[in-house]
């Protein structure tokens, strides 16, 4: 699954069969390299959906058990949201100081949320571990 694919997708509560909101981005923990939450817009109860509360990602909707799954950001997610956490549009830098280009998309595993690749204007970087994401760019360590 890619960030650009999930963006805008409807979030549907399975229990009530009601659309809760729409995906408006992902929250990635740059130290662990996993998606920890989805940002949701249009939901009355909040703007954050923890990855653990996603019950399924289908071609047409992101499924949750109940509308209450969307709430306010807490703990690590709130901490990440307080930083320059957005990946898209940032420079991709190696830990050895080489610029690999601008990030245009992020690929992640639909099951465990692990970031599997970063897409830049020049191509796909799949052989790297995430280290950080800050004001200047996204930092990765490439596999030797």
């Amino acid at each position: 699954m890619r960030l650009t694919e999930i963006d805008g997708r409807r979030v549907m509560a399975a229990g009530t069969a009601v659309t809760v909101g729409r995906v408006a981005g992902v929250v990635i923990d740059p130290r662990q390299g996993i998606v920890v939450a989805l940002r949701v817009k249009g939901a009355p109860s909040g703007d954050t959906l923890r990855w653990a509360d996603v019950s399924g990602i289908g071609a047409d909707a992101v499924m949750v058990a109940s509308p209450d799954a969307v709430g306010e950001a807490v703990d690590r997610t709130a901490e990440i949201l307080g930083t320059k956490h957005e990946f898209v549009g940032k420079r991709l830098l190696t830990d050895t100081g080489s610029d690999l280009g601008l990030v245009i998309d992020v690929a992640f595993d639909e099951q465990d949320g692990a970031v599997t690749a970063l897409h830049t204007e020049d191509g796909r970087i799949g052989d790297a571990d995430l280290i950080g994401c800050g004001s200047y760019g996204v930092v990765v360590r490439r596999h030797a």
Binding site: I131, C133, Y136, G137, V139
Partner: peptide
């Protein structure tokens, strides 16, 4: 040349 932390912040 920019000085950047491993967390991606420019100092």
């Amino acid at each position: 040349r920019p000085v950047v932390t491993l967390a991606g912040d420019e100092i």
